[in-house]
Design a protein around this nucleic acid. Sequence first.
DNA 1: ACATAACCGAGACGGTACGTCCGGTCTTGAA
DNA 2: TTCAAGACCGGACGTACCGTCTCGGTTATGT
Lengths: 213, 213, 213, 213
Amino acid sequence: MNEPDTPAPTETAPRRASIGARRNPAAETAILAAARGLLAEKGYAGFSIDEVARRAGAGKPTIYRWWPSKADLFIAVYAADKAAAIAVPDTGSLAADLAGYTAALWRFWRETPSGAAFRALLAEAQASEQAMTALREKFLPLRLADLGCVFTRAAGRGEIAAADAESLLQLYIGFHWVHLLTERIDEDAALIDRMARLIVRAGRPDTAAPPSR
Amino acid sequence: MNEPDTPAPTETAPRRASIGARRNPAAETAILAAARGLLAEKGYAGFSIDEVARRAGAGKPTIYRWWPSKADLFIAVYAADKAAAIAVPDTGSLAADLAGYTAALWRFWRETPSGAAFRALLAEAQASEQAMTALREKFLPLRLADLGCVFTRAAGRGEIAAADAESLLQLYIGFHWVHLLTERIDEDAALIDRMARLIVRAGRPDTAAPPSR
Amino acid sequence: MNEPDTPAPTETAPRRASIGARRNPAAETAILAAARGLLAEKGYAGFSIDEVARRAGAGKPTIYRWWPSKADLFIAVYAADKAAAIAVPDTGSLAADLAGYTAALWRFWRETPSGAAFRALLAEAQASEQAMTALREKFLPLRLADLGCVFTRAAGRGEIAAADAESLLQLYIGFHWVHLLTERIDEDAALIDRMARLIVRAGRPDTAAPPSR
Amino acid sequence: MNEPDTPAPTETAPRRASIGARRNPAAETAILAAARGLLAEKGYAGFSIDEVARRAGAGKPTIYRWWPSKADLFIAVYAADKAAAIAVPDTGSLAADLAGYTAALWRFWRETPSGAAFRALLAEAQASEQAMTALREKFLPLRLADLGCVFTRAAGRGEIAAADAESLLQLYIGFHWVHLLTERIDEDAALIDRMARLIVRAGRPDTAAPPSR
DNA sequence: ACATAACCGAGACGGTACGTCCGGTCTTGAA
DNA sequence: TTCAAGACCGGACGTACCGTCTCGGTTATGT
């Protein structure tokens, strides 16, 4: 009904037009970058699709087309960093592996927007069934896979009972979450070491004790 | 030009007037009850101060006067139930204490609005500095106090090393948080027992050494 | 990251491909039919180029190629019906001609999408200079030509003064527009007759009166 | 969930706050003025609630609270001018009254935003049932009342048959609409006079025939 | 006895964000 | 060159909440 008031500045604005009936990688890049920047600057509060669209010079429908919920956007931001950032250590010692991984993870969370992204994802999941589903189906499995092999290797070496591997992993993850969600992911080496040793001890096969008997 | 369809005659409503220059307990009760009901029905999503005010028949400033942030309201809802609902067990066995406490806590979270309230508090804390402060200063200390004595007693009995008590408590809390935040607080006795035993084992004094004994 | 749920495989659709470097009549037909149907069902509200393209299985550029504005599309819809639907009466009496024409026109407006199309054209012309131009240059002359001869014939018969023919035509058209735009084109024979007689009387040459003098 | 990012500039911005649980006349004035200005500058195209809110420094909900549809806003803009602008003439001659009124009305339509407002209202009514209702119930009766007495007086003087008054009024209104909707409300005195005389002649009592006299 | 102060419900206020729809442009890949 | 398809940006839509503010009224308290 209304003409768009002459979207005039077609010639002046470096508008990013369609490249045909398929996804425009430039738009995707711009949107993810805007989301990253916004999360880094303002965190979950202050994050809005509107602002992402503004910063990316993108239309909101373009965002919703590819990331139907904020959770999807958070996951994408996280995924873009993750691979490049954290190597799963393999030192031959579970305690060392865990301490190393925790230190690396916390640094990663502190120094990239991914910490904020994960916090946002967890928060969003409490408000939106859709986000909860995305968290459980698209996100958690990836994290479990990463760390899972650390515990699997430890079980292979006899450091922990194989049957406990999964439960220990859960304990370890809980430790991370609590610290992230309460903004205590500063690098406290002593704390990290203590926790790693506790986890290892918790998993120590019962055969480790008996000798004492 | 248009009247907003005459918002209902004031004289018919059993309005709850001021009782003078002091807090009206009836208003407080009504507001808390409305917040409880809303959390129970809709969870964090669907919770809004507007809706609480509507349900309570209260003015928004009355709510903001007594609970300056949503976090305060969530904490109040939680606190109203907590005392009555969970007794800290003292069976003489740390594993049994933990398993009992977890089962009771999860039931409490499932069967009262408090589970939703805590999830809401955690989510809110990710978006609001004020809520984060309330979480850390008004809420967490209370929980730590509860459970702290369980570990203290266990240390006193020699079940765990006193130096590890606090770290073990953190692990245990992390376990609860992960399950709450991913909506897995169904009563799985086997899982709970396994985790309790792991915690105990993690805290086991260096009996591994005790060949020395 | 997320595919927009794979919008149906292209190979199953009975796609209407290009027939080479010239206009495809099948596409034109499908688009006009879709526009007709949409106008008939939803009226001006609910009419959109997107929806027409969806219904016609056409691309939007195809529509814009042949009908650069919505006004052109409305006019095309109107024109497709008009010729076949209304015969300009010639009874020898202006009043009878007018009453007959009005009755036929209103029936036509009620029973085909053309009434909606004309309303849409008038509305669109208020928002778009392009549509206003189309209305004035492509549409109105046709209507004037139709009815013009009715008045010309009446002037030839001495029923009305030739000098007034055009002004009477304007009055008559205004009558139609008011009724169309306020959704009062139900067939009220008495009203129509009264108005036709008034028009005739307005045009009666002044020589009709003098005898009385 | 999200803090409004510290609406900070409370102290700097001359924000127009609420004045309590009742309508703020300053807001009403600002909104109407913004709507007037926007209509005057851009017409129906280019008119949007968003832009009105921006110009008025008002929130969209404030606009929707008092003018639930654009039609209501158009009517309010029209009404604000109308009373002050057009006096219904009473010269003792219907033709002179009509010509005078038409000239005044067209000038009013040209020189205030009311012409654009009425065009917008008519257009909007073609797209929205709500607007059509507002047009028929809130707007047209007022216009009919204005002009009605001109014809009533003429009938009292015997210039026209009382039974024809209403129909003549319709013809006269149709004349105005056609010229407004096709942007031909420039002051063409000859055209206006001719049309006024035609209307008078159309209403002439059948005393014309009365050779009987 | 009476002013004052704090409380109460109510609801308007400016604003921001939501998620959706449409307009008009552009590009692709096939015919 | 035309076609269907559909992505692109922009912007408007109407609604929900946010947190603040002001009102008019009520009730206790302190003078």
